[in-house]
Design a binder for these strands. Structure first.
Lengths: 222, 222
DNA sequence: AGATGAGATATGATGCATCATATTTCGAAA
DNA sequence: TTTCGAAATATGATGCATCATATCTCATCT
């Protein structure tokens, strides 16, 4: 047994299918309640059932998909309570990412963030909401990456997956809510101010949350 | 598409195998660096390879197992940095669980927690460390359950899985560190005092963390 | 029209064969 | 003894068949 075992990332069909489905979920290509069938997806994607099954099962463990029955896999409609729970968790975790990022951020990091904001402004101008969603999320995920917190990154990624259809639906008309809060956050990071960074990301989450709460039809069930 | 889609839990071979492997990991039946082979496990467990593969893949996505290569699945030795990251995240999340639990806790909940502590005292007296580990963890998981935060529960479960071998190793000699901090937490919950509950769980995590940091050999790598 | 039940069909779980390639073994050379 | 390379073996990924049972369809009855 050796110390310092090194993890590897390898890309196989299953992980490719998983990535494609994650993208589709985040971009709002599925609606809550939509049914996913393994054989249909395998045909569409040109694979056998195994990698699709792998990906689907993974997404159910991510809680981005649910089994309504042992034969019925759906995109879930999350409840208001669940959304609020996720938001509360995010307030705790994204503020941790932001604080830590404020302490570690480099000029290269800042340039990258600036670029994401600029590209999001362009996406907004051209009405490309799917790209806007993607860039908003990419901005958020920069924080745990800059903070060098891989566990936190993975945890947040799964939370965002769960919110995917909700966020895509709430922002289907686009809007500045996905961009404006990023400016004060960027400023705080430039200033290497952890407290300001934490406050900025929390303000982002809360203002975004208000938008989601006002524009979404939630499941009445937990 | 209906509102209020209801998720179901169904138990199949894959989830049974997953549960058995999670148990084994938490109880320290594997050492960091140990190799798991799908066919061997399938033979041991008396299943075909499919459910074992499902369970193994799920554990790799949980980051409780790692692929050293596309053919080599191991129990990871986590790094000091990763442990500290997990601990930081736990400080945030378990305090959230504790605060919320303090607001929602019932007498039935309190009795259950009391029982867990009593059983842990017994396990300590009889030198049953594996049971002590299990009961310590059960106690911790009561908080998100009482708090009615299923997402938080799932998130914490995965963090504990990752720490499984480390915790089992650090506490291989047993000790009061797994019990003593539970008393002030129980008191805070009895008093319905969120701030005290949060402080108590954080103290538990930090004191446990000191024990782990002093007694563990970490991987030098991230 | 709605409800019910039977039969047909579909679905994910499971088993197992095959494949590509990763790993181990073993013999030879240094 | 150690190192190296070739061959043998093993391993997880993938494909696909089969199974158990979930779901859908359709006919009949109220």
């Amino acid at each position: 047994m050796t110390n310092g075992l090194q993890t590897i990332e390898h890309e196989n069909l299953s992980s490719k299918v998983y990535g494609a489905l994650c993208d589709a979920i985040i971009k709002g290509q599925f609606q809550p309640g939509d049914r996913l069938k393994i054989r249909d997806l395998a045909q569409t994607l040109g694979t056998s059932v195994t990698p699709v099954r792998d990906a689907i099962l993974r997404l159910t463990h991510d809680e981005a998909l649910i089994f309504l029955s042992p034969r019925d896999i759906r995109i879930p409609m999350i409840s208001r309570a669940r959304y609020l729970e996720i938001r509360t968790i995010r307030l705790r975790l994204e503020s941790l990412a932001a604080e830590t990022a404020a302490r570690l951020v480099t000029d290269t990091d800042l340039a990258r963030l600036q670029d994401l904001i600029a590209r999001n402004e362009q996406a907004l101008s051209s009405g490309n909401t799917a790209l806007g969603l993607e860039l908003n999320q990419a901005f958020h995920f920069e924080l745990p990456a800059i903070a060098q917190m891989p566990v936190l990154y993975g945890t947040l990624r799964r939370l965002w997956l769960q919110m995917g259809p909700l966020v895509a639906s709430a922002y289907s008309a686009g809007g500045r809510t996905m961009i404006d809060p990023h400016y004060p956050l960027l400023t705080a990071l430039k200033n290497r101010d952890p407290a300001a960074a934490a406050a900025a990301i929390q303000a982002d989450i809360l203002s975004g949350g208000e938008h989601i709460l006002h524009s979404s039809a939630f499941s009445d069930r937990e």
